[in-house]
């Protein structure tokens, strides 16, 4: 996993009728027809497909990521309960493939939130009013934000500093881009010990499988 330390980039607010969109579900982030891949790469073509594409297949110029000022945005700003629905990790993969490594929203759905951290994407939770204010400053290509994970500070294009919370353990693994599996396997003896305890306490779980 690629580490996340600091990011300086433009931001794209995901709005509907002028308000940050709530309940953006993972079907909306990446619809089912793009899930039939065996790769993690190349999924940006499916990112927000039905929002960014018209019924005839042509790009919708009104969609934020289709606008030149926002198309290189590394930060996405959205409304409440971002990423609800399916557990598909294709959602963070698609964001990553688009170059988006930070999502700012008032709240996130659990599984999506977790999947972000597994892919070097920083989800930042801030009150709706702050998200809205950030969205209002996200005026396009010359309006760069800096997200500093170490200091837990967002610096806005206006120079304002906004602090955010992040779980210490998750922060550490993002900063270092750690490989979870490799780390867990260093504790393999502990897992084996647990398996022995499990075998004596709940032997039926070991004997009848299959």
């Amino acid at each position: 996993m690629k580490a996340f330390t600091t990011l300086t980039s433009t931001a794209a607010p995901l709005t509907h009728q002028g308000r940050l969109m709530a309940n953006v579900d993972t079907d909306m982030i990446i619809p089912k027809q793009f899930l039939k891949t065996t790769e993690r790469e190349g999924l940006s073509q499916g990112l927000f497909y039905e929002l960014k594409t018209r019924a005839d297949g042509s790009p919708d110029p009104d969609f934020v990521l289709n606008q030149p000022a926002y198309q290189n945005a590394g930060i996405l700003i959205a409304g409440e309960n971002f990423g609800c629905g399916s557990s598909r990790e294709h959602a963070p993969w698609a964001l990553l493939d688009q170059g988006i490594t930070c999502v700012i929203a008032p709240s996130f759905a659990d599984i999506f939130h977790n999947n972000c951290y597994k892919n070097g994407i920083l989800p930042i939770q801030l009150p709706f009013e702050i998200c809205e204010a950030l969205g209002n400053q996200a005026g396009g290509s010359n309006h760069k934000f800096t997200v500093d994970l170490e200091r837990q500070i967002i610096t806005t294009p206006d120079g304002e500093e906004i602090a955010f919370d992040v779980d210490e353990g998750r922060k550490a693994s993002l900063l270092e881009g750690l490989d979870d599996i490799g780390m867990t396997l260093t504790a393999e003896d502990t897992i084996s010990q647990y398996e022995r305890r499990r075998q004596s306490a709940m032997p039926w779980l070991e004997t009848e499988a299959g």
């Binding site: 557990s87 599984i111 999947n115 597994k118 979870d180 599996i181 867990t184 396997l185």
Partner: peptide, 14 residues
């Protein structure tokens, strides 16, 4: 439910 990175983690470590 879990994501695919976690699927890999469970496969490798249970």
């Amino acid at each position: 439910g879990i994501g695919t990175s976690e699927v890999e983690h469970v496969l490798a470590t249970q």
